[in-house]
Write a protein that binds this DNA or RNA. Sequence first.
DNA 1: GCAATAGTGTCTGTAAGACAGTATAGT
DNA 2: ACTATACTGTCTTACAGACACTATTGC
Lengths: 229, 229
Amino acid sequence: MEIADTPGVIVTVDTVLLTLCDGTLHVALLKREHAPFEGVLALPGGYVHVAEDASTWDAAARVLRDKAGIESPYLEQLATFSGAGRDPRGWSVSVAYCALVPQMLLRGGHGGVKLLPVEGLPVLPFDHKSIVAAAVARVRAKSQYSSLPVYLCGDSFTLPQLQAVYEAVLGEPINKVSFRRKIEQLGMLEAIDGAQEQGRANRPAQLYRLRKEFNRRLSLLDRALNARD
Amino acid sequence: MEIADTPGVIVTVDTVLLTLCDGTLHVALLKREHAPFEGVLALPGGYVHVAEDASTWDAAARVLRDKAGIESPYLEQLATFSGAGRDPRGWSVSVAYCALVPQMLLRGGHGGVKLLPVEGLPVLPFDHKSIVAAAVARVRAKSQYSSLPVYLCGDSFTLPQLQAVYEAVLGEPINKVSFRRKIEQLGMLEAIDGAQEQGRANRPAQLYRLRKEFNRRLSLLDRALNARD
DNA sequence: GCAATAGTGTCTGTAAGACAGTATAGT
DNA sequence: ACTATACTGTCTTACAGACACTATTGC
């Protein structure tokens, strides 16, 4: 029997929780409670707990739940950051995860969560700035061909609202007709019968929701990677 | 000061080395030299060596060099596989990397390397079958919009050869004119002056090579993720 | 009726695929 | 000259963006 662990390697998870505030992408940061960098704003993260976590995905979900008070409907593995220099405690491996949540869902979260725009972040400890940059790049890339931004909306939304979300993520205006054609052909939305946005002095917009069979589809794919087999 | 490692977690790297044989993707496997699964074919992998490896990328490169005798020009992080159940030794984290090499480069490798078609693999230990599947899916996806398959060719190649490689990876024929237009607009190849394929009873094809500025571009991007900051 | 935004029909330009033609080697 | 494959010019078709038009609410 060989050694049952890898001495000298720190194994952690970090989560990049993104949401839309005022039309721009923001990332959730927390003040660190322990050394190193105690009191400094950083990504929510923590050690993998061998006894509790069935995988690093579960560890990331636990970190978000316990430290930020959030159950993210979307949680995808981003990449793994590693090396001798990234953590002053020693050689470390951090499996980074990316979460997308509607801003409303953050209302119920813990009070200590700070939201900062992803552009123009202050200096962050470890290599957290690189991790955020990788998450934003991934989300922008996926938004060009997938339904990923729907996770930034609530349960129901109008097409103009969804288009505004896409435009905020991608940082450029989208042609209305093309957008609606694209959404149509992706086929992952369904109109909610008789439900329309009310209360404004114009034609009301149809409300839509994600079809059940597409719900959490992307995160399920990621889960399969972490399953036993 | 906290603990300097994460007890009970095994930290390894696994490499999926892909190449083209007889027009289909093959993966390199090695007989395991130690328990568990001693003597069984598996992906080349090993523990992270804190003293030698500056990152998991370096660990993967070292594993390929030492165990398979190959310096891969392309080595990209794929995903991280983790959990209590995937390794009988205990809770483990494996950072998986994907390498692409031209078949010629494998001639110089160690003798123990077995190449098997990625379709119809036998049962593999750990979750190596999932890892291979993820690598193949990633390579196919990236091949649709990038120059990734050039790493499966040698230093110089003709456009018809490159097209055959794309078709083998994607598993479907490509329109010749569209392919040449696409390659042209990607602009990462340059004709080698006066060099043409010889020796066949037809018009000789122009030889091309990857432009220097595009060399290892994708793997450099991945390296940046693993750098100190 | 008017303002404002939702949603749709249609035109146009760009890019992908099909096809056929020309080019150049060996035999 | 003939064959085989490399390469290229051009036609057609599909799709993305632009624009204009209709639809429906509150005031």
